[in-house]
Design a protein around this nucleic acid. Structure first.
Length: 411
DNA sequence: TCTGGGGTCCTAGGACCC
DNA sequence: TCTGGGGTCCTAGGACCC
């Protein structure tokens, strides 16, 4: 029998912002952008949640619900840094740690009784350690499966610990809403409601065949979840197993929709550079490049192309994505969002002889130089695109300091 | 209300191959 | 005349998570 901890940081983004600006403490705080911006709430403090503000809600809605809230821009670097500290604390505690996202982790604590004592005692120690080392609160759920641990950490919030004693899983889950089960979202909830299923207990009472009939394989997994099992898919995997990235993407939503082709294509260039850079940093080669295009009316399309040879070069990514864009954009139509997505990663070695080595070396030098400049002066300072008029319009807009755009570092 | 950005996984149809 | 059955790759879209 496994003993799984799920450690979930409380109001993580808000708490990190409070570390940087203690005057925020206790206030209604909304992280994600300014009150009049396009965008959604990334995180809300408990004081703001009292007014109905929650994550994924449009910022403008949040401003109406809670006019006195302080609106703060998000700082991903800060969250990554704090997440690293959280990981250090956890890793000190158990060698089997898996960060499930920036602010939550699973620990396999099976067989650590001699070292840490019984689960609740271990959890209290971890809880204290987390607070003293990071100044951040977390909640900890303990159970025999990832699912039970995850659900119980949610019930333990804020700043609490909850242990579901082995054998008590069904009893614990029964009174919860089906929506509380990880994997059940808005759509699945509606589908279940239509069948008269509202509580996990309703689910558990149902014959598995009924669920299978309505929802296929998913239905079977759901039946298992109602009993607290890690049924199927990722939940079944060992804690700390393979975490190789499957895709890398960047996207941008304009503050105002635009149909200016030069502006749109310069955005694609910038996004391609960001994707290329991350591929290089991760030592990855992508075979499939995908464009995402969202119009004013929110209709969204994706168009992908798989290359004959995989790449990590900004220019090749850009060329593909621009071709896809020109083929699929309704010229003149106003665009809300553009995205560039890379996937189908291949081992570096399978590629090496496809570029003659001299050319490859020059490219690597050029790109490394560009990456260094970006480290120094920011993402917007360097572009490998030359001779594209208006290419820097948008970045100038975003970077009023007006750092000069450097030319092609290849020469 | 007017809808971000980064991901993962799943489904489903068509192409293509044996 | 009626037209197999997998397996795998590719593409598009969508649900879901934080």
């Amino acid at each position: 029998m496994r003993t799984i901890f799920h450690v979930d940081m409380d109001a993580f983004f808000v708490s990190v912002e409070e570390l940087f600006d203690p005057s925020l403490k206790g206030k209604a705080v909304v992280v994600g952008g300014q009150r009049d911006e396009r965008g959604v709430v990334s995180a809300a403090s408990y004081a703001a949640r009292k007014f109905g503000v929650h994550s994924a809600m449009p910022l403008r809605t949040a401003a109406k619900l809670c006019p006195h809230a302080v609106f703060v821009d998000g700082h991903p670097e800060r969250y990554r840094e704090c997440s690293g500290k959280v990981y250090e604390v956890l890793n000190h505690f158990s060698p089997q740690v898996e960060m499930a996202s920036i602010d939550e982790a699973y620990l396999d604590m099976t067989g650590t009784k001699r070292l840490h004592g019984p689960p609740l005692r271990a959890a209290h120690m971890l809880h204290q350690k987390m607070k003293s080392e990071t100044q951040l609160n977390c909640s900890i759920g303990i159970g025999v499966s990832r699912l039970v641990a995850k659900v119980s950490s949610a019930q333990a919030k804020p700043n609490g610990i909850l242990w579901i004693v082995p054998g008590e899983e069904a009893k614990f889950l029964a009174p919860l809403n089906v929506r509380d089960i990880p994997g059940v979202g808005k759509v699945m909830e509606q589908n279940l409601h239509a069948l008269g299923i509202r509580k996990v207990d309703d689910l558990a009472q149902l014959d598995e065949s009924v669920l299978k009939e309505h929802f296929g394989r998913w239905g079977l997994a759901l039946a298992g979840k109602a009993r607290g099992e890690d049924a199927g898919g990722w939940f079944d995997s060992e804690v700390g197993a393979d975490t190789d990235p499957k895709s890398i993407s960047h996207e941008h939503t304009y503050n105002e929709d635009t149909s200016d082709q030069e502006q749109l294509e310069s955005t694609l260039m910038r996004l391609s550079e960001m994707v290329g850079r991350r591929l290089r940093e991760g030592g990855l080669l992508a075979r499939t490049i995908q464009l995402k295009l969202r119009y004013k009316d929110f209709t969204t399309i994706t168009r992908a192309h798989s290359l004959a040879a995989s790449t990590q070069l900004d220019t090749e990514i850009f060329e593909q994505v621009r071709t896809l864009f020109r083929k699929n954009w309704h010229e003149g139509a106003e665009v809300r969002l553009l995205g560039v997505h890379a996937s189908g990663f291949e081992d570096r070695s399978s590629q090496i002889d496809l570029l003659d080595s001299g050319r490859e070396e020059r490219w690597n030098k050029a790109l490394a130089a560009a990456d260094r400049l970006r480290d120094k002066f920011g993402e917007s300072s360097v572009s490998l695109a030359t001779g594209m008029k208006g290419a820097f319009r948008e970045r100038t807009h975003e970077n009023p300091a007006g750092l000069p755009a450097k030319g092609n570092p290849q020469k």
